[in-house]
Structure formats: C-alpha cells, structure tokens
Design a protein around this nucleic acid. Structure first.
Length: 136
DNA sequence: GCCAACGTTGGC
DNA sequence: GCCAACGTTGGC
C-alpha cells in the first residue's frame, strides 16, 4: 500500500464538504507530475488531505476507492481523476508550522516542492502525521 | 497584495 | 533544443 497527500483550497473544496459528499472524484489536476502521481494510486491507498492557503494544515485521511480514469470535466485525454472517500478526521490538525519543524516531515514534498498538489508520502511520514494528529 | 518557485509556451 | 516571457500556486 502507498501513501499520498493531496492539497485543496478549502474555499474550493473543503474537508467538511468532502465529508458531506461522502465521496468525490479528485479533479482539476493540470500538472504532469501530479497527474503521474494520481495514476499510481491504487485502490485502498491512504491519502492525507491538506488545506492550502487557508488553514495550511492536514485535516484528515481519505482512501482511494477507484483508480484513475479520464477526467470527466474535460475532453483532454491528458488528464485523469481518482475517486476518494473520507476515512478519518484528525483529532488535531497538523499545521504547516509543525511540518516545517518536524524532523521527519520537513523532508516531505510539501516543504521541498510547495507547488505540487499531489505527492507521495512514505509510510514513516504518513505515520508521523497520524501521531501528531492525535491518531497514534 | 507581493513575491519566490517552477512549469509551460513559443520564438529563434 | 535553448531560453525568455508568462502564468499559476501558495506562503507570508
């Protein structure tokens, strides 16, 4: 199983909205590196949900329930989506501030490549987020 | 609102 | 194939 992190601006699509919807297809990815990451997601993989701009914190964990397929919001076959459903809400959000100063998490793409919207996490990094999020 | 980082586009 | 110009993202 693999681990990932996706970003969303809460203004556009928040964790709360995601929980109301019960599931969503992850659309709007228009960057090849992020797209390639989407394509590598397998059913059952766990995905951290990060609020960018507003909040700047990891708020929950989602699960991949359907692997990649053509993005229904465009005819351009370059772009794909995956289906996600909410799994856990973190007891405590893990803030960017914490991530930047944490020995394990400061090495994640969130810090090193701040513009990438879909990125892989290692198991260690993933577990560290759960621990800091009060889910350990 | 500004700016750094970085991806993409297009002229040559 | 290089590189300048431009656009977008996201932190501050």
């Amino acid at each position: 199983m693999k681990y990932w992190l996706v970003k969303s601006e809460p203004f556009k699509y928040s964790w709360d909205k995601f929980n109301e919807d019960k599931k969503t297809f992850w659309d709007g990815v228009r960057n090849y590196q992020a797209r390639n990451n989407l394509k590598e997601m397998k059913k059952g993989d766990l995905v951290l949900f990060y609020h960018s701009n507003e909040g700047k914190e990891i708020v929950g964990v989602a699960e991949v329930i359907k692997e990649f397929y053509q993005d229904p919001t465009t005819d351009d076959t370059n772009w794909v989506v995956v289906d996600l459903k909410p799994k856990h809400t973190l007891k405590k959000s893990v803030t960017l501030e914490q991530i930047k100063t944490d020995e394990i998490l400061q090495h994640t793409g969130l810090i090193k490549q701040s513009r990438l919207s879909v990125m892989p996490f290692t198991e260690d990094q993933f577990n560290r987020v759960l621990l800091l999020g009060g889910m350990g």
